[in-house]
């Protein structure tokens, strides 16, 4: 592929949550090794659109720049992914950047994912410790296989890509979405985390819970951490059914 002279960006901008979005184009001289975050850094130092007008720098969020903090997820050429890991070399131009569409836009590419963090509360995505002091005991033993399986889910960085891809999750739906569901799978599989299994399952058995999953399988395809979300949802389907039966007989 011939090396281009420059990069051309088409960026969807929005000044605030309640104003209309608009598109703006920017150019950046070519240099090898750029990614979307480093390009946005260049543009904030040189905030001139392709019409030659000085404009306010594009707002976006990033922290680690190593694809582990989850902050910089956005749509790059229509695909939800981490901007820091999206190398410009090889991306078709113009490079189109948009905020994830399923969340409130704070400004430009910055979004508010607090709904995901609230969901983590709803499903009690934690292990209940008596306290954080030393009790001179470890957690119960966990087999390497089980730990490897748990590790797949414990790397979820709450980036929201899977939520973006899910047709059932949007601003007008109550569906909790794939990422918080996977955290139920994670915590239910821990020997002491399992003590609160029932409560977690109840949290996903009602409205907006697991039965709202339409099985589109989009989530698992976009997860940058390759988290087996659909496998987790399948397992939870079985767990909730069993719980439903237990509830029935307990009545």
């Amino acid at each position: 592929m011939a090396t281009p002279q420059e990069f051309l960006f088409r960026i969807k901008r929005q000044d605030s949550p309640d104003t209309a979005p608009y598109w703006e184009q920017f150019r950046m001289p070519y240099a090898p090794g750029h990614n979307v975050v480093s390009a946005l850094m260049y543009l904030r130092e040189h905030p001139v659109n392709s019409a030659g007008n000085k404009v306010a720098p594009v707002v976006w969020e990033c922290n680690c720049m190593e694809e582990v903090c989850g902050a910089c997820a956005m749509l790059v050429n229509g695909v939800p992914r981490q901007a820091c890991a999206a190398l410009l070399d090889g991306l078709p131009q113009p490079i189109v950047l948009e905020p994830l569409s399923k969340f409130r836009v704070v400004r430009d590419l910055q979004i508010d994912r607090s709904r995901m963090f609230e969901a983590l509360k709803k499903v009690k995505a934690w292990i209940r410790l008596d306290h954080g002091g030393d009790i001179h005991r470890h957690a119960p033993l966990i087999s390497p296989d089980e730990q490897d399986a748990r590790y797949l889910f414990s790397r979820c960085m709450t980036c929201g890509c899977c939520m973006e891809a899910c047709p059932q999750f949007h601003q007008n739906s109550t569906f909790i979405g794939p990422a918080p569901l996977a955290q139920v799978r994670l915590h239910n599989s821990h020997p002491t985390g399992a003590y609160d299994k029932e409560e977690r399952l109840h949290a996903i058995m009602g409205e907006g819970g697991i039965t709202d999953c339409g099985n589109a399988q989009n989530c698992v395809q976009v997860c940058p951490k390759e988290i087996p979300l659909t496998t987790a949802i399948g397992e939870l389907g079985r767990q909730t059914t069993a719980q439903w039966l237990r509830d029935l007989f307990a009545r």
Partner: peptide, 22 residues
């Protein structure tokens, strides 16, 4: 060591030995 035990109790996915310990 006490701090790591606490992390273990919190459910950290520490890599395991074949015996299931840290």
């Amino acid at each position: 060591p006490g701090l790591i035990r606490t992390y273990d109790r919190m459910g950290v996915t520490f890599s395991r030995t074949p015996e299931g310990g840290m």
